[in-house]
Write a protein that binds this DNA or RNA. Structure first.
Lengths: 252, 252
DNA sequence: AAGAGAGCACTGGTCAGACCAGTTTCTGTA
DNA sequence: TACAGAAACTGGTCTGACCAGTGCTCTCTT
């Protein structure tokens, strides 16, 4: 599928499911481009599509805003501003991961319990792709692997919620960056966890799969914390006025 | 006005005013750009807008074509993205509860761990209201109690996700009904679970709180299954949107 | 002559970088 | 202190390049 279409879907889901309130400002085109790792053209085309659907409105020099009348958002509207959570607060990322730990664990549990032979096939395929790819160059296989597991849970609600959370994570800078900047020794541990998770699910050991999956997310979370506390060269997109730097040079 | 907007209007008018019939191919992007004397970017953005409005469809390598479906004639994009999940309603409810079991458990766990004295106060107040109300006449205190616990988790993401799930549940018929139609003996068990949950949180026993909360959701789920298999009459009541969680005092 | 295949000429899709045009914020002066 | 101007944002447009599907055509083989 075309990337711009994917992007527009993701943004729409984020807006409709993620509780972004009307009149809420969404990140600038350049920020979105950097975070989603696509060119600005793609972002602009996706935004124009959402504009056509009436999901957002754009004002020259100001930004793009969630439309006041978003169809189907009636129930989530009164959630109040959730967007401010994304603006530079690293805390939110860990809140996200805290929830994800639980849900990824459940997904693994259910996958080990319910996976059909077709699921097994898909998961295996994704796992092989994961093994044979240089993690530094491409994070896609990692996503594919986890996605296959989540879908093997055969719980559409779970799939949907985890998808929303993943989209939210993409809005934070650190998440993406950290995904691509694993230390060697940490990378090794992650590979091991992936293998354990794979084996537990294929062997049909729910409790074990759950435990490994939860440990995996927790490990990722802690790794990010480490990198952060080390004051390593985390690239921060300054949404807050206090850290006014230049938002360039994000792409990897 | 923005040029791309003008272009999309002109094209739409051209199509709708009879110039172009459904399934008819419209000129290529490069041709349009040359003819209207604008860059291809502008054309692409305008086309994406029309795509969002459902006026045209685009196929890679072939071109753009007028949609068979005319805009404005009530079509698919009315319903929110969540609603399609409820098409086969019965199963979805249990998927929902499956996820809730996990997250309510986590919320209870975190609440027992992180609740401040203010949280304790709120939870106690909600619990007292719960005790003193006839559950058959009003389900509000039940919501309030759980809401207070979730907010005491101090994880805004968790609060948000559980709120969304609760809103989803309210859209299913059975959920509301079952909430109001508990058998006497089941009601007794639920009261007991509430008490255990309350005590575990106030005493700061995370593991215990989690266990009880999960058992509670699971019990509710199983009760619904029982009622369903008994073939009891499902009273169809309209969903009341006001019970949707109030965004107040989400501690920060 | 008939068929298969390679190549080419389209189509849309993505990218990079530059510059223009509004808006907001910071800053140095009067 | 107040105000005007300079940054530093925002979206809007342009250019030119290249990638990726599609389908026609022409040639070479059989």
């Amino acid at each position: 599928m075309a990337i711009s279409r994917e992007v527009s879907y993701r943004l729409e889901r984020l807006i409709l499911d993620g509780g972004l309130a009307p009149e809420q400002k969404i990140p600038s085109e350049r920020q979105l481009a950097a975070r989603l790792r696509v060119s600005r053209s793609v972002i602009r085309e996706a935004l124009h599509e959402l504009q056509g659907r009436g999901v957002i409105e754009t004002r020259h020099g100001k930004g793009s805003f969630v439309s006041t009348m978003v169809p189907g958002s009636g129930d989530l509207r009164e959630q109040g501003p959730l967007m401010h959570l994304f603006e530079g607060h690293p805390r939110t990322l860990y809140d996200l991961l805290e929830v994800r730990e639980q849900l990824e664990g459940q997904a693994a549990f259910l996958a080990a319990k319910r996976a059909t032979s077709l699921d097994h096939h898909r998961i295996t395929k994704a796992y092989r792709a994961l093994e044979e790819t240089d993690p530094l160059s491409n994070a896609r296989p990692d996503h594919g692997f986890h996605q296959a597991i989540v879908e093997a849970s055969h719980n559409p609600i779970l799939v949907h919620v985890l998808n929303s959370l993943k989209n939210m994570m993409l809005m934070t800078v650190q998440a993406s960056v950290a995904n691509l900047n694993p230390r060697a020794e940490k990378r090794k541990k992650i590979v091991q966890q992936h293998r354990q998770l794979y084996e537990a699910i294929m062997a049909g050991r729910p409790a074990s799969a759950q435990k490994v999956a939860m440990a995996h997310v927790r490990f990722v979370s802690e790794s990010m914390r480490d990198m952060e506390s080390e004051g390593s060269e985390l690239i921060r997109i300054p949404v807050l006025p206090e850290t006014a730097g230049n938002p360039h040079h994000i792409s990897g």
